[in-house]
Design a protein around this nucleic acid. Structure first.
Lengths: 189, 189
DNA sequence: CTGTGATTTCAGTAATTCCTGAAATCTTGA
DNA sequence: TCAAGATTTCAGGAATTACTGAAATCACAG
C-alpha cells in the first residue's frame, strides 16, 4: 500500500470496519480511498494505492456499484472508467440508509407478514405469533417514519436533527394551543 | 432442528439474516428462539431446539450477553441458567441502537478526531482531511441527535415517530409565531 | 471435602469467504 | 475486421470464521 499517512490510516480503518458493516476489507478500503481522493480514480490507480489484485478491485467496485455508493465518471480522451463517491455527505447517508433498509429490514418485514398470515396450531405458536406481531409493529412504525423523513430536503432534515428531543416541547405547546382553541373536550389531540 | 413450523421459519430467517448483522447463524437463531419462546429456556433446551452443539450454544449465549440482548433468569429449584429476551420491543430497539453505535460508529468517530488533529503535509492530505471533517461533522450531528432522543420515554418517542416529517410543519408554525411576537428583526429564529 | 451436574474453554476440523492469476470477454480506434 | 487496451469471470488456493467434542473448570448439595 502506497499512500500518504493520513489517507492510509483512514483507508485501513475503513477496511477493518467493513467487517461490522457486512462488506469485506477491500471494498471498505476502496470506498475510503475514493471518498478522500481529490480526483476520480481508475481501477489501476486503486490497485497501486491499495496493493491488491486487479480482479479484486474489479469485484469491489462492482459491489460498491450495487450499493449505489460509487459514481462512474468519464474523463475526456481516456477510455478507462474512473470512480468517485458523491461528494455530499448527506446524500451518502441517504443512499446508505436506503440500501441497508433494503437488505436488512425489508426481508424481515416480509417474512414477518407472511408468518402472521398463518394459523397458529398450538398455544406455543400463538404466543410466537403475538411476539412477531409486536416486532412487526415496531418495524413498521420505524419504516413509516423513515419513509416520511427521507423525503425532506437536507436543510430541513438538519434542522430537525438540531432540534432533537426538544421537538417534544414543541408538541406540548401545540397540544396546549389546541386545547385552548377548543376547550370543550378534554382528550383532544 | 425440532420446532413448530411457524417458529422454525422465524428462527431460520434470523439465522440467515445474522450475516448482514454481523452475528453468526447460531447466534441469530438462538436470539430468535428466545424471542418467541413463552418461557425462558436453558442451554440444553436450545441445543434440542436448534440441533447444534452444546458448546456452540454456550458461546452464542455469551455473545448475546455481551450485546445485552439476553437476560438471565433463575428458575426456583433449578440450578441451570435460563435465558430470555427483554419483552418490550422498544427496549430491545434501544439496546440494539446503543450497541451498534458503540461498535460501528464510535470507533470511526475517534479515528476521525485523531486524524483531524494531525497536520496535513501535502495538498492531497489537506483535501483528505477536509473530507474527513465533513464526515465527522455529519456523524457528530447524528449522534448528538441520537443521544438526545434516546432519553425520551417510549410514549414520547412513539409520538415523535408518528408525527414524522410533519414535525417540520410544526417548526414553521413556531417560526411564524416567534416572528409575530418580535416583528422588528427579520432573520430571527 | 466430595461427587454430581452445569458450564466454559480450547484445539482441531469444517465451512465459508476472500483474493489471486490466467483466461475470456468486451470496447473502440484504426 | 482487427488489434490493443480495458474489464470481467472464474477455478483454485489462502485466510478467516464457525462449530464440535473432549477435557477443564465451576457451583453447590450433602
Amino acid at each position: 500500500m502506497n499512500l500518504p499517512p493520513l489517507v492510509q490510516s483512514f483507508v485501513l480503518h475503513f477496511g477493518e470496519m467493513g467487517r461490522s458493516w457486512g462488506i469485506n476489507r477491500t471494498v471498505g478500503q476502496i470506498y475510503a480511498l475514493l471518498y478522500v481522493s481529490p480526483e476520480p480514480l481508475n481501477a489501476d490507480q486503486i490497485v497501486d494505492a491499495l496493493g491488491v489484485s486487479r480482479s479484486n478491485v474489479s469485484m469491489g467496485l462492482r459491489e460498491l456499484q450495487t450499493w449505489n455508493l460509487v459514481l462512474l465518471r468519464h474523463i475526456p480522451d481516456d477510455r478507462r472508467d474512473h470512480f468517485t463517491t458523491p461528494d455530499d455527505v448527506w446524500q451518502i447517508l441517504r443512499v446508505l440508509a436506503e440500501e441497508r433498509k433494503k437488505r436488512e429490514v425489508d426481508p424481515t418485514l416480509s417474512v414477518l407478514r407472511e408468518l402472521l398470515m398463518q394459523k397458529p396450531a398450538t398455544a406455543e405458536e400463538r404466543h410466537a405469533q403475538a411476539r412477531m406481531a409486536e416486532m412487526h409493529g415496531l418495524i413498521e412504525q420505524l419504516t413509516t417514519w423513515y419513509d416520511d423523513v427521507k423525503r425532506l430536503e437536507t436543510e430541513r432534515l438538519a434542522a430537525l436533527l438540531a432540534l432533537g428531543a426538544k421537538v417534544t416541547k414543541l408538541m406540548e405547546v401545540k397540544d396546549r394551543v389546541i386545547a385552548l382553541a377548543r376547550p370543550r373536550r378534554k382528550e383532544n389531540v
